[in-house]
């Protein structure tokens, strides 16, 4: 890919992340730009968004003294219908 085209694609990707971060702020998701960027990459690599959100919530609780095993239990025991 020509360097100019690569730079344009990177700029567009950055702009998309910026907009998504603004949406995350409006929704009060408590996500900094770096964490959001990592999560976007994980979703683009096939990670289920609900499972990822459950993991984030558990990691945050763990930071307040929760148990990491609950993350596996929460993600594997929940069945959601839409």
């Amino acid at each position: 890919m020509p360097p100019n085209e690569r730079a344009e694609k990177q700029a567009a990707a950055q702009q998309a992340v910026d907009i998504l971060h603004e949406i995350a702020t409006i929704l009060n998701c408590h996500l900094d730009r770096r964490t959001l960027s990592i999560c976007i990459s994980m979703i683009e690599n096939g990670v289920n968004p609900e499972a990822l959100a459950a993991v984030i919530k558990e990691l945050r609780q763990e930071g307040q003294g929760g148990q990491i095993d609950a993350a596996a239990a929460a993600a594997s025991s929940s069945t959601r219908r839409r």
Partner: peptide, 11 residues
């Protein structure tokens, strides 16, 4: 642990 939970979820 996270990788395991992401692989075994039922969402």
């Amino acid at each position: 642990a996270i990788l395991q939970s992401l692989r075994s979820h039922r969402f």
